[in-house]
Amino acid sequence: MKHKNNKILAIFAVALIGFIVFSTSSMADVTVDIIPVKPSPEETIEITAKITDENVTAVYVELQECNGNTGICYSQENITMTGMIGNEFTSSITLTHDDATYLQYTIIVQTDQGWAEYNKDTKVDYEISAPNNGNTDDDNNTPGFEFVALALSIMFISLILYRRKR
């Protein structure tokens, strides 16, 4: 009886180990790189996903842009990522909302076994340039109107002095 119990226990242990090995091996590992790391609004970004699974048939990225100050989000359709070398997939995406302060993405991987989501709703903050309080670069660097007025004044005074001398 004791011998039989040990046998059942052994079979159960083997099945459990097999299940753990199978479940961990069937789950792909996905590493994502975004260039630039801190994108600016309306910039074009390159998103690359390195996937360890050999049986990948398609990869998509689901991307949303949000404004954290006003609490507004905009959705984009699923974007297909194209295969590069080995199991690297990439996509070039132009961000479309000038008021967005961050994006979030999810990588969707299709294999023989179906769909799986990775890095769900991963947030990437934007590089937001500080407001310049109305002092534009144009004001600081261009002499413009003031210079023309000064030149005209000098010419006018020179003309009067020249006429007086005569």
Binding site: Q64, C66, G71, C73
Partner: peptide, 11 residues
């Protein structure tokens, strides 16, 4: 709303 939208959760 949508489930991925964090501001929607706040709403």
């Amino acid at each position: 709303w949508a489930t991925w939208c964090s501001p929607c959760q706040y709403q």
